Structures are given as structure tokens and as C-alpha cells.
Simulated assay, not measured.
Amino acid sequence: MDKKRIDQLNEGQEADEHLFSDMFLADFWEDSEYAKESYQSEPPTDELIDSIEKELGYKLPSSYIHLMKYQNGGVPKNTNFPTEEPTSWAEDHIAITGIMGIGREKSYSLCGSLGSPFMIEEWEYPDIGVVICDCPSAGHDVVMLDYRACGTDGEPEVVHVDQEDDYKITFLADNFEEFIKGLVNDELYDTSEEDKEEALEKVAHGKFSPLLKELCSRVTEVEQVEQKIRSICTRIVEEKGHFSFHADELSYVMYDVQFWLYTKSYPETNRDQYVDVYPNIIVFGDEFGQGGYAPSFITDWLDYRTKEGRIVQDHGMIRFTDSYAEEVINTVKEA
């Protein structure tokens, strides 16, 4: 670590002691297995902090470092922050799922597999700073440290970035400390039941995309295939509270179903072509859609099914094996 960085840390130690009281910190974090598995790492060393800052290209706020040295990432007890303007999440607030820790080991750490570089590179969030919080929308909005006004070494503002509204940036707080102290309990804004009901209505009655409608019209192996698809997606909403596909078992069922439907109608399809057309089936479909996704979810699924031997390649074209296609058909029939 260079002398400049050591001097900065030493100068900030006394100030850090006054950022958050012991009483505040003792009651800040939620104790859960999910938080420990996905977010929480050992307290960061000065060397790790320096390394992460160099990788990100930004000096992290002293208040953030102070909080992470007490607990390095996790889920706070208060997960809502009031706003003065509406977002895709709500009219008067945003919600976070967790706060990313300093590190690379956990999925939701700053440089983890679902951390800040991933969200900027894969989800195309604006390159204005550092993603520090994920949100319940599963990638469709995030909270970021915004360094546009202060430069890479300054004190960043905290903003909400809304993919659902063309990456609209909404100001939240002048600094990280203000953001943390301004978090409020979700009981003040609990709309989970209403959100779930809306999602259930969408998957039960929402209009299919033209492509999904076309693919379903060509199915002869399964009776009422459209209703079967709606049934599987209803189970997804019942489990998650929202309509999105990730890396869970039911999402993989829907990846299977979409691939079977598409390659049945368009057998001369290679991997790149399928990755390009995939979002037009459901993700960016009509009323029966999700509005956004991370391409890595579908490419990871393709890699997994290929490694299993359930997707095979023939002269550059990809398809299910006959036996696995039959398994998928039976799964749809039973839905």
C-alpha cells in the first residue's frame, strides 16, 4: 500500500469513529443465512480495500469503509429509502435487498460475480461510479455511488438508477452516511402483496409476445400449451413474489420450454442466433413479459445443458437430444 493511501486511512480513523455509533451498528444488520451466504465476508484488510479501489477506479467513501469494517456486506434491517419522485418501484420510495461488501468472494460483493463491474458491463448500467446495493427487482434497478460531480477521489452522492425507465438516475442522498442513516423499515411501504397480485395477474392473463404466440400455435405434442406455460410461471411468481427467471429450478424449466418451443419451429438455429432471439420470446414480450434480464443467465443455462449432454450441436446447429426433448414435453404436460 502506498504512503498516500496509508496517510489517508490514518487521517480518517478518528473521523470514522464518529460516523456510526456502536448502538447504531449493533442494531443495523439482519442476521440471516442468506445474507451470510450471498453478501457477508470477513472484515476487509487495508490491502484488500486498496486492491478493490484500484479495480473499480474509485476511492470508496470513508463511511462505507467504516461500516464494512464492522460487518462486510449484508442485509440491513431497514431496506427502504424515501424519494421525492416516483420510480418503477414505487411512488415515494425505493427498496434495496442488500449492501455489497468489499471483496470478490461473495456473489454480492463489490467485485463479485454479481457486483458492480458485472452490473455495468452486463446490465449496461451507466459508468458513473460504483453499484453498492441490489434491489428486489432482480437487476432492474440498483443503488450507486455517483462520482460525476466529485471525481474519482471525492465524496460521491448516492443515486438510484432505474433500468425500467431508460436508466433514469434519481438523487437519494448527498453521501453514503446520509443514505445509511436515512434507511427506513419496509413496514412503512409494504407493497409485496400488491406486487405479487399484479405479477399473478400478468402471468395468468397477460398477452403473449407475437413470437411466443407463434411458437405455441405450432405445438401438437401438448394440449393447451399456453395454459401450461402460464401454470409454470404462476408457480414462479408464487415462490418469488415477482415474475423473473434466474438460476433456480423453475427458471431452468422455463429456459427448457422456450428452447424446445423455438428449436422445434426453427431447427436451423445456432447458439448465437438463439441468444439473440431469446429475449423476444418472453423477456421483452407483450403484457406477458419481464422488462429486462442478464444475458449471462441464459448463456449459463446453455453451457450447463451442453455440459450435461442434453443440448447437442449438429453442423453448428443446437438442439435438445430426443430423449431430453421428451422429458421437457412431459414436464409441460404435467404442469
Rank of each mutant, 00 (worst) to 15 (best):
L183C: 03
F208Y: 03
E239C: 06
F176A: 04
S217C: 03
F208S: 09
E178W: 01
K240I: 00
Y252P: 00
E178M: 05
R218Y: 00
T191K: 11
K196A: 02
C216G: 08
A247K: 13
V219S: 07
K240T: 00
G154T: 03
E155M: 03
A204E: 14
R230H: 05
E221T: 14
Y252T: 09
R235C: 08
L188I: 06
E193Q: 13
L211G: 03
R230M: 10
R230T: 04
I229H: 08
D166C: 10
A199N: 11
S231A: 15
E197M: 15
H246R: 13
I232M: 10
G154P: 07
N175I: 00
N185A: 12
G182T: 04
D165L: 15
V203G: 10
P210F: 11
K181I: 01
A173C: 05
K202P: 01
A199G: 06
H246M: 13
V219L: 05
F243C: 03
Y189C: 03
I169D: 03
M254L: 15
E164P: 01
V219A: 08
F243P: 02
V159W: 06
S209P: 00
F243N: 04
K202S: 07
C216S: 10
L172K: 02
E177M: 10
E201L: 10
E201P: 02
V237P: 02
E193D: 13
V237H: 02
E221P: 03
K168M: 11
C233G: 00
H242E: 12
T170L: 05
E249S: 14
H160Y: 15
Q163N: 13
E201D: 15
C216L: 15
Y189D: 04
E178Y: 01
A204I: 04
L212H: 00
I229D: 06
A199D: 09
L212P: 03
H205I: 09
K181C: 07
S217Y: 06
N185L: 08
F171M: 12
A247F: 07
L188H: 09
Y252H: 15
F179L: 06
K181S: 01
E221K: 13
D166S: 14
D186R: 14
V159H: 06
D162M: 07
Q227W: 08
C216E: 07
V159I: 05
I236F: 03
F171A: 09
V253W: 05
I236T: 04
Y167D: 11
N185P: 03
E226N: 12
K240G: 07
F176T: 04
G182E: 08
E155H: 08
H205Y: 14
G182N: 07
F243L: 01
L212Q: 10
E198L: 12
C216W: 09
K207P: 04
P156M: 05
I229M: 15
H242F: 11
S251A: 15
D166R: 10
Q227I: 02
E214N: 08
V225F: 04
N175M: 04
V253K: 14
P210N: 07
G241A: 08
L250V: 02
L200S: 04
I169S: 05
L212V: 01
A173D: 04
K168W: 01
N185Y: 02
S244A: 13
Y189K: 04
